[in-house]
């Protein structure tokens, strides 16, 4: 079953390195020995059906969940062994875009964006924070929404603001959890373009968790297919789907309505 293609020669250093990662919840084994490298400046799309542990994987990378077994190294640091302060320092270099954007309901867009800066960099002046907010809002194309409340935004706009909130800390790594779920096809394309723009402009390395093949194809330099708690294959989009495996074929056919 496992045809993991882990032998891609890369000149760049691996910014994320996962080795033998296991995670279970009670009696349910979600991740059963995962290996993956993400190289500097690269986007890796992780594909898989719902409930296969895709989101669990990036939550472990961000230190929100602890692995049962295995090593997870992000920017040279083993996430599971870091102390709280070291983990916070690392988190400043990781941007996490949540599936439902996770914008703070009680704050408007501008306050949502300024909040991580105000909390982490107490010495920044109001002017500096305002400039940073304007810059990231411009980057996601929503400069005119600064005073809106999250409840007044559309799904696509919320996703953009969620991404902007992570960009304000100028992360080296971006983790996207289902960036196109629940969006119409046109907005999906816009979000895919935004992810590529972020990669170019902010020189980020990213993991994009998705079950949307269009998103994976558009945004991923490589694709990793998660099946039954393990990576079935890691490689280019065409390499991954050039297979006789029925589960992978049905996944492909369903997405493209063949």
């Amino acid at each position: 079953m496992q045809e993991t293609n882990q032998h891609i020669t890369h000149k760049n250093e691996a910014v994320i390195s996962i080795r033998g990662l296991y995670k279970s919840f009670g009696t349910l084994d979600v991740l059963k020995g995962i290996d993956l490298d993400v190289f500097k400046g690269e986007n890796v799309a992780v594909l898989g059906r719902s409930g296969t542990g895709k989101s669990v994987l990036i939550k472990i990378l961000a230190g929100l969940l602890k692995p049962d077994k295995g090593n997870v190294t992000v920017l040279g640091k083993d996430v599971s062994t870091l102390k709280e302060k070291e983990l916070d320092a690392l988190r400043l270099k990781i941007g996490f875009s949540f599936q439902n954007s996770a914008l703070y309901d009680s704050m408007n867009v501008g306050q949502n964006l300024a909040f991580p800066l105000q909390m982490n960099f107490k010495n920044l002046s109001k002017k500096e924070i305002d400039t940073a907010v304007a810059e990231v809002l411009d980057a996601v194309g929503l400069k005119n929404k600064i005073n809106e409340m999250p409840a007044d935004l559309s799904g696509g706009q919320r996703k953009r603001i969620g991404i902007a909130r992570t960009l304000i800390l100028k992360p080296e790594i971006m983790l996207y959890d289902e960036p196109t779920s629940g969006l119409d096809p046109v907005t999906c394309i816009e979000i895919n373009e935004l992810i590529k723009e972020v990669q170019k402009k902010y020189k980020t390395s990213s993991i994009i968790i998705t079950h949307d093949l269009t998103c994976a194809k558009a945004t991923g330099d490589r694709v990793a297919m998660l099946l039954d708690g393990k990576f079935f294959k890691v490689g280019s989009f065409d390499e991954v789907f050039d297979t006789d495996n029925k589960l992978v074929q049905s996944f492909f056919n369903y997405n493209f309505i063949k």
């Binding site: 939550k59 961000a62 230190g63 929100l64 916070d88 320092a89 988190r91 400043l92 990781i94 996490f96 949540f98 599936q99 439902n100 996770a102 914008l103 703070y104 309901d105 909040f115 991580p116 909390m119 982490n120 909130r165 992570t166 800390l169």
Partner: peptide
């Protein structure tokens, strides 16, 4: 509770903000 289920507390944590303290 609403902040927890909509992942707003997780969002604080990944932004290096201590949600318990705040």
């Amino acid at each position: 509770g609403s902040m927890r289920v909509t992942e707003q507390i997780d969002a604080m944590e990944v932004s290096a903000i201590n949600p318990y303290k705040y």
